[in-house]
């Protein structure tokens, strides 16, 4: 096992409820409206697989992983790898969603760690997450995500 140390922590405050944030991540019909992808799992229970599927006609599976921890609507931990690298355990990173109410807002913290330093995934996500989170915030607050 090579050393995996690189990690990112993203925080956004959204004027909504924890339930809505949890649904925005786990319900395909919601995620497709701001993420350009659906997150699909049969039950989002620990041990279940999940897939990140592009909302084009080909329905390309871009990412795969497993649910590690699930405590709706407070916390979701999943493993995360490119579909093309799914057979290499070293390529799996870990994403933690923490959802906590703060007054009239919800604080969403996304921590992405166990990333391979210098990997393509590291480059991709450091640009990707800010857009996804801004788009989720816009979608939950105004009904519209940001265009990709």
């Amino acid at each position: 096992m090579t050393e995996k140390s690189a990690s990112f922590v993203y925080v956004t405050y959204i004027r909504t409820t924890p339930e809505k944030v949890f649904e925005a991540i786990t319900r395909p019909e919601m995620a497709r409206r701001y993420w350009g992808h659906e997150n699909v799992s049969k039950d989002w229970r620990p041990g279940s697989k999940w897939q990140h599927i592009r909302t084009d006609e080909a329905r390309t599976v871009d990412l795969v992983g497993e649910v590690i921890e699930s405590d709706p609507p407070k916390r979701l931990v999943i493993s995360w790898a490119n579909e093309s690298q799914k057979d290499d355990p070293d390529q799996y990173s870990r994403v933690t969603f923490d959802i906590e109410p703060q007054g009239e807002m919800v604080k969403l913290t996304v921590a992405h760690d166990e990333l391979q330093p210098g990997s393509g995934m590291l480059n991709g996500i450091s640009k990707g997450w800010p857009h996804v989170l801004s788009s989720m915030k816009s979608f939950l607050e105004t009904g519209q995500g940001l265009g990709l």
């Binding site: 993203y10 925080v11 857009h131």
Partner: peptide, 24 residues
């Protein structure tokens, strides 16, 4: 300003850049 976030790991407090407000 939510431009950094902190995480406690053991006795250490780690600082992470949070680019989400910059993206907005």
């Amino acid at each position: 300003a939510n431009l950094i976030s902190t995480v406690r790991r053991g006795r250490e407090k780690l600082h992470f850049i949070n680019p989400v407000p910059l993206y907005e």
